[in-house]
């Protein structure tokens, strides 16, 4: 007790000394960007961008800005391979970005997400102008547009989203796509998740002309089923997400044991179909769909 009080008093005193200073001023022309945490003065042509969210990384790379640093989903696997970029410094993980590593890169723009990095905003903003999207759960195309605005690449992002729609339509007419498709993500022994028409890959399947069979969707995103109800996933084509598309052993037992009901099962990469949210990821999903249709033809 007798020692705790002085320690705590010292704590109060020292903390009082460390009043944060006003944020650093950026050189050159700036614009005002509205975002989830208010407004930020963002450089017109950001040169050193740090991104803390996979969608922001994907979008930045897609519009031709290679970030200097990115928070990675996993320390072990690093940056998503489908992006085909390297030379981006890792700055911690998406849930735990490393503030000092970010500051060391001397960024002129930081992109983050309110739902994940809320607590870090003030400290990030003292390093560089920081723009937050609200949540990664919002429709990805809306978030991509905000990222486009922050990077001063609105036209490019809009163009990418148009290209995506056009390519969908092109695939649909080229392969005369019809019929139903289910997208299954095996969760564990107890649960299979079906992705709905609003989800990232689900919406891509729909826009190429497949119909996703009706389920009891949660917000159109997802529906979980027990293996007992695996026949609910029945469709002309079933896509199953996996970490290793070459390993047919990753097809869940419930589907393997009911082969008669599932004539067409295709393994697809989880890191693209589930996690690869963004304009580049969407193109990669379309690549996969086109490859599938080419083989099926």
């Amino acid at each position: 007790m007798r020692f705790t009080v002085p320690v705590v008093l010292a704590a109060v005193f020292l903390a009082g000394c460390s009043t944060p200073e006003s944020s650093t001023s950026a050189d050159g022309a700036t614009r005002t960007v509205e975002h989830a945490r208010g407004t930020a003065q963002v450089p017109d042509a950001p040169q050193r961008v740090v991104v803390l969210e996979p969608l922001e990384l994907d979008t930045a790379v897609a519009v031709g800005i290679t970030p200097v640093g990115a928070a990675v989903a996993s320390n072990t696997s690093g940056l998503p391979k489908y992006l085909g970029v390297d030379g981006i410094a890792p700055v911690g993980t998406v849930p735990e970005p490393d503030l000092e590593a970010i500051a060391a890169l001397k960024p002129d723009l930081i992109l983050g997400t309110e739902s994940r990095h809320s607590k870090l905003y003030d400290q990030l903003a003292s390093v560089a102008p920081t723009v937050f999207m609200k949540t990664q759960a919002d429709p990805w195309q809306d978030n991509a547009k905000l990222i486009g605005t922050a990077l001063n690449k609105s036209t490019e992002v809009a163009g990418l989203l148009d290209t995506y729609q056009q390519r969908c339509a092109a695939i649909r007419s080229k392969y005369q796509v019809s019929g139903t498709a289910s997208l299954v993500r095996p969760r564990d022994e107890t649960t299979l998740s079906l992705y709905g028409p609003v989800s990232f890959a689900g919406s891509t399947l729909q826009c190429t002309g497949f119909t996703i069979p009706e389920q009891e969707w949660e917000d159109g995103l997802q529906a979980d089923i027990s293996p007992e109800n695996v026949l609910k996933a029945k469709a002309d084509h079933v896509f199953v997400t996996t970490a290793d598309v070459a390993d047919t052993g990753t097809v869940p037992a419930a589907i393997r044991d009911n082969q008669a009901a599932f004539p067409s099962v295709t393994l697809v990469d989880t890191s693209v179909w589930v996690s690869g949210v963004g304009p580049k990821g969407a193109q990669t999903v379309l690549d996969d769909i086109e490859k599938f249709l080419e083989t099926a033809k």
């Binding site: 996993s74 320390n75 072990t76 993980t93 969760r187 564990d188 107890t190």
Partner: peptide, 21 residues
């Protein structure tokens, strides 16, 4: 598990306990 999403995903299922499979 926090540094490996695959491990995290597998463990959050395993942690719940299941008699299936």
């Amino acid at each position: 598990t926090l540094s490996n999403p695959d491990a995290f995903d597998a463990m959050r299922g395993w942690n719940a306990g299941s008699l299936l499979g």
